[in-house]
Design a protein around this nucleic acid. Structure first.
Lengths: 240, 240
DNA sequence: TTTAGTTTCGAACACTGTTCGTGTCAAGTA
DNA sequence: TACTTGACACGAACAGTGTTCGAAACTAAA
């Protein structure tokens, strides 16, 4: 195969000058789109801009993708492919699931707000399927009944995505690190603490608690909460 | 003024009949917007359409709302106001929280896909605050520590919203009832069942389980999962 | 009646996703 | 070599979007 001689590196973006541009492919479009999202965020991703970056017109993209939604779907699946698969052979299934959840969140967070496209639609891209398969293997290996495993995985994914979206929104508002976010949280805390105490006694009393904890801590708590509820279905009852 | 004597050229289209429109207020705008969402869905809600429904131009709305986002925020808060507040006096706190979650979901689902606007931003509308206050009262009344109560409420809301969004998307695709959705789920099941069994043994084996259960059942499971994990923090340990 | 201040809103701006029909060019056939 | 064919490329246009600006219309005080 002569194609092996020149392996087109998909992550290497084609240059702006239309002179030496490669002949446009779904791969090239996806790479460019992902680069744009990473650089400017999801809102800045328009068909025109992707095409422009490729040195062509927007209409050309519709030869490879039926519409923008399909492009985004494939883009998301490509990112999901970056998540390392959990191993069903791990000795401690709870730890393995946790590790996998953290890894997923990390990958999503590393691509700005792309995760926003991961709504409710069941993802059916090849990488999503591989991930689902691996996760199911772990849960079933722990003795969790099929139905429970399927539903729980749904919920876990939901929490991961929702949390990543929240993180992305914070990042968009410039609250990237804990230190950056402090003024914002202080503002919220003050607002809550100064509500009328007769109508909102609990909110006033809990103003500090409401904004406490880093994003990581809150995410870890959410995952623990689910796994805590899930453990009772695993082999050996809820003792863990 | 002599200018008034000159009659307007009749062939020039006369201005729109002023009709008997009320003098335009934030209230009127919100009511109209909500009516539009209920009728045509969130995507059909544009500033122009709302204004048109009120017999005016889009620019007029900006006198009452800084932008579309603010309008949507207030619209959501208004809908949250329809949710009945949970009672901290209820004898069984778990049952009360469950009831409240179901009620919230029902309200969201009754307004098409408006719930999509409820992303990660902490909702701070008056009705949202009232709801949060009531829910916190219940959780604290159960002996749950402040920090845990705050974080759990976050997660519960997240699950409710995410589930309602999923239901809305199904409804948009015409899969409103279980019977309507059956063909779709059958399709997904068949697709999963026919994947290469060597690469996806679990998905193939669990094809049925993956699509099993009504929306209500899956939602109930999700809430139970969280409350199951939460119960251990309540007064009296994790028994219950 | 004049003036000042506020509210209203048509027109325009800079975008968006998508489609149509033409343009380009390489491969296949005569 | 000359001609045809068909797939890909893409400029221009369409129908929409949120938002802004400045002029008109109305209201209330002087």
């Amino acid at each position: 195969m002569s194609a092996a001689a020149i392996p087109a590196p998909p992550w290497r973006a084609p240059k702006k000058p239309p002179a030496a541009r490669q002949p446009l492919s779904a791969e090239a479009v996806l790479s460019t789109a992902l680069r744009l999202v990473d650089r400017d965020g999801l809102d800045a991703l328009s068909m025109r801009r992707v095409a422009q970056e490729l040195g062509t017109g927007a209409a050309s993209l519709y030869a490879y993708f039926a519409n923008k939604e399909e492009l985004l779907e494939q883009l998301l699946d490509r990112v999901i492919g970056e998540v390392p698969l959990p191993s069903p052979a791990a000795p401690d299934w709870v730890a393995e699931v946790k590790r996998s959840c953290y890894a997923s969140r990390a990958v999503f967070c590393s691509h700005r707000d792309l995760v926003k496209v991961a709504r409710a639609n069941i993802p059916v891209g090849p990488n999503s399927l591989r991930y689902t398969e691996a996760m199911l293997a772990v849960l079933r290996g722990a003795g969790i009944p099929d139905r429970i495993a399927a539903w729980s995985l749904d919920q876990l994914s939901l929490v991961i995505v929702a949390d990543a979206v929240e993180a992305a929104i914070h990042a968009e508002h410039g609250r990237r690190t804990e230190a950056d976010a402090e003024p914002y949280f202080a503002q919220v805390r003050d607002y809550l603490a100064n509500l009328p105490a007769d109508e909102f006694p609990n909110l006033v009393a809990m103003a500090s608690s409401m904004v406490e904890g880093s994003g990581d801590e809150r995410f870890a708590f959410a995952i623990d909460l689910m796994l805590g509820g899930l453990a009772r279905y695993a082999r050996g009852g809820d003792g863990r």
